[in-house]
Design a protein around this nucleic acid. Structure first.
Lengths: 158, 158
DNA sequence: CCAATAATAGAAATAACATTCCCCAAAGCT
DNA sequence: AGCTTTGGGGAATGTTATTTCTATTATTGG
């Protein structure tokens, strides 16, 4: 352990995690075989990852197209005055709206960067108008629409 | 089915998918109970989702901090001349580099928007320099560093 | 309106898998 | 060398997924 948070991983750990990042349904026995361990020590490592929170969760990833979510938008938002209270109000909206899938504060002249998904452009526009523009705390929202998604992965580079 | 791709989901389907987007380890029996079905029909619906590709995959989500990936960067990239060949070369790099977790072409004056994760700023700089800047096809790379991640979810709004 | 048929739900049996327990070997320490 | 700690192997156990079969509910043609 280098500092309080980071965990040291040996090459076998990294192999296990790489496999699980691609497919969490792999039976422990298969993983064990592929990384050169037998079932129980392999299972113990995975259990440790879960207990330590290194594996945050296991989820199903859905296809946005098939559920009718064809539009991805990147919005940069600037607050009118960046007071504590305004930030709190904005961040509460972010937490509440399921269309907002990612939100970061970033360097540069804008305050927030959001990734938002919606059924279509109208639905996106409605969401932005209802949630943000009628609010007095927002100075500007600038939207860039994704024309094509070349890559989207949840696999961290280990 | 509205068009060739989108699948109609009834309220029970949506409940099932919502649960599985949060936690794919839930036993079918639990899901069944929560949505008001018994085990087998619930299992059959889930199987159908998988067969149809609506559930793309099931994965483990890791904690970037704990594996030592503290830096998230949004890079906008413009190619020198946007020829077929240059685009192909750029997109091949995107596909190959695991640090690049998302990549989109977007509206506006830049060509590509990337989300990149790295151990630290030096590692990010090294990656950008090695992969992009020494290449003759890139006009400019503009990087915005994430200061704080307020939200990151893989749950689509159903 | 009724019977025939297809679609969907439920119950029970089986197979696959995760989880635990106990034992063993190697590496580090006194 | 003897002791302790760490990590692996194998088998028993419990849980869950999957399959098969049966019952119920819609749907359609007469």
């Amino acid at each position: 352990m280098v500092n309080g948070i980071v965990i040291d991983l040996d090459p076998i750990d990294i192999k296990i995690l790489s496999l699980l990042q691609k497919d969490s349904t792999l039976p422990t026995a298969d993983i064990a075989e592929r990384v050169g361990l037998s079932q129980s020590p392999c299972w113990r490592r995975i259990k440790r990852f879960r207990d330590e929170g290194l594996i945050r969760k296991e989820v199903c990833l859905l296809d946005p197209k098939i559920v009718g979510l064809g539009v991805t938008v990147f919005a940069t938002v600037t607050l009118l005055r960046h007071s504590e209270e305004n930030a709190r109000q904005f961040e509460a909206i972010v937490a509440r709206r399921p269309e907002i899938m990612e939100c970061y504060t970033v360097t540069g002249d804008r305050d927030y960067l959001l990734r938002i998904v919606a059924k279509d452009i109208e639905a996106y526009d409605r969401m932005i108008t209802d949630q943000f523009l009628h609010l007095s705390i927002i100075q500007s929202v600038s939207s860039r629409f994704a024309l094509r998604s070349l890559k989207y992965t949840t696999e961290l580079p280990l």
